[in-house]
């Protein structure tokens, strides 16, 4: 078949490029350029023990703002696509049964999962983790709730209020950086504190809390839109 052989030729061509890239790869020995600057001065300039967080939130904070915007756009486009009428929700959800084990264990697990998510984003500047990871953990707690306790409702108004509040505060903190510190999203609007403690690294914990709330509510919104569509059918 012509189509299959074309695919084969394309794959082989790509494989040849990849192979030559792989064979010519020489591992680098030292940090170079901008990474070296981040490693040498990150402690004094940003004060975050987790250098990846320092890069994500402060050095390249503008990228992260764009990333949050992309996630927001995704959530709103999905909400637009899956427009459902909320009037006849109640009668459909009552029919769904869940197993007793799942329901009981979910009641214990959901608060713990939310707590873990909060822990992950509050300690984002000290340990591996951060706003996105913590937000994803919180959203997974809500997914468990949707599966195990289908009669519980999540108010879309609360979700979108939390989401808009955290997004707006994130931008406001960035603008405060222009006024009080060196530039947009500079974290030195608050004092850097002692290196390695929870209240350190200036605005990074604050920004990560906002990102965590925003990502958590956005992902929960996507899931609950999908669930309502399923209920409607």
């Amino acid at each position: 078949m012509l189509k299959n052989s074309l695919i084969l030729i394309l794959i082989l061509g790509f494989a040849a490029i990849m192979l030559s890239l792989f064979l010519s790869y020489t591992p680098s020995e030292d940090l170079k350029g901008v990474s070296k600057h981040y490693a040498e001065y990150g402690k004094e300039e940003v004060g975050a023990a987790n250098l990846v967080s320092a890069v994500v939130v402060t050095y390249r904070g503008f990228d992260t703002l764009g990333e949050v915007t992309i996630l927001f756009l995704t959530a709103s486009v999905i909400g637009f696509f899956l427009k459902v009428n909320h009037s006849k929700d109640d009668e459909n959800t009552a029919v769904k049964k869940y197993s007793e084990i799942l329901g009981t264990s979910a009641k214990i697990l959901i608060p713990l999962m939310v707590l873990l998510g909060v822990y992950v984003f509050i300690n984002g500047h000290l340990t591996p983790g951060g706003g996105f990871q913590g937000g994803a953990i919180i959203a997974s707690a809500f997914v468990l709730m949707f599966i195990a306790l289908p009669q519980r409702k999540i108010s879309h108004k609360v979700l979108s209020a939390v989401e808009s509040f955290s997004g707006l505060s994130y931008v406001l903190i960035g603008v405060l950086g222009i006024i009080l510190a060196a530039g947009f999203l500079d974290n030195q609007i608050l004092s850097l504190g002692t290196f390695g403690s929870v209240l350190s690294a200036g605005a990074i914990p604050l920004i990560y809390i906002l990102i965590g709330l925003k990502v958590g509510t956005e992902l929960t919104g996507i899931i609950s839109n999908l669930k309502e569509l399923q209920n409607e059918q």
Partner: peptide
């Protein structure tokens, strides 16, 4: 090692002890 400066040993002369944090970000 990972670019997380949680020990005192890592906090001096950091650039020669950690992997590149930029690709991870």
């Amino acid at each position: 090692t990972a670019p997380i400066l949680d020990s005192a040993e890592l906090q001096t002369d950091t650039a020669s002890k950690i992997v590149d944090p930029l690709p991870q970000a």
